[in-house]
Simulated scan of single mutants.
Amino acid sequence: MAGGWSNDGAVQEQIDSTIEDAVQRARSQLPSGESLTHCEVCDARIPEARRQAVPGVRLCVVCQGADDQQQKASAGYNRRGSKDSQLR
């Protein structure tokens, strides 16, 4: 049920668009290409098991953990400014 100036499917369209953006962002961050033998941040050796498990890996486990923490800290920002995000 929409009210005001929005059409009937506006809320669902916003939800779908937010999910599509998140999926595209996640896919763009997937490693691709050949795995590195040394971390591109700290130059530590990347174990063979990690290189086989994650094709295209560019970071060692420690640097990947730090990168994941940074990504988590910036996640949750809704640039569309939905009412749901304003209630949190």
Rank of each mutant, 00 (worst) to 15 (best):
D16W: 13
C63K: 02
E40L: 07
A2H: 11
V23F: 15
P31V: 07
R88E: 11
A22G: 03
D43L: 09
N78W: 07
S6Y: 07
R79H: 13
R80Y: 05
A10N: 06
Q12S: 02
Q12M: 15
I15Y: 02
R80L: 10
C42I: 09
Q29C: 09
R51N: 05
Q64Y: 05
G3A: 04
D67K: 11
C63A: 14
E13R: 15
R50M: 03
D68N: 05
R80F: 06
Q12T: 06
D68V: 11
A10Q: 12
N7V: 06
A26D: 10
A53I: 01
E34G: 04
A75L: 03
P55Q: 12
R25W: 05
G76W: 00
C39N: 13
P55S: 01
G9A: 04
A44W: 09
V41Q: 06
C42T: 03
G4M: 02
R45Y: 00
R25T: 14
S28N: 15
A22V: 05
V61D: 12
A53Y: 02
R51A: 01
P55G: 12
S17H: 11
A2C: 03
V54P: 00
E34P: 04
S6Q: 15
R27L: 06
A73E: 02
V11W: 09
W5R: 08
L36I: 02
K72L: 14
R51Q: 05
C60Q: 01
S6C: 11
D67A: 07
Q64T: 08
D43H: 15
R58T: 06
R51L: 05
Q69F: 13
Q71T: 11
A73G: 07
R88H: 13
G65M: 08
E40H: 14
C42S: 12
S32A: 06
E13A: 07
G3D: 05
D21T: 12
D68W: 03
A44L: 02
R79Y: 05
S35P: 13
V57S: 04
Q69G: 14
D16N: 13
G3L: 11
A44P: 12
D43M: 11
Q29T: 06
Q64W: 11
E13W: 07
V41R: 10
V54I: 06
R27T: 00
W5D: 03
E34H: 07
V62R: 14
A49S: 10
D84Y: 12
D43T: 11
G9I: 05
S82T: 15
R50V: 07
S35H: 15
L87H: 15
Q86D: 15
E40N: 08
V61K: 14
S6F: 09
A73L: 14
G9W: 13
N78M: 02
Q14W: 06
N7H: 14
Q12C: 00
P47H: 00
S17V: 07
I46D: 10
G33P: 04
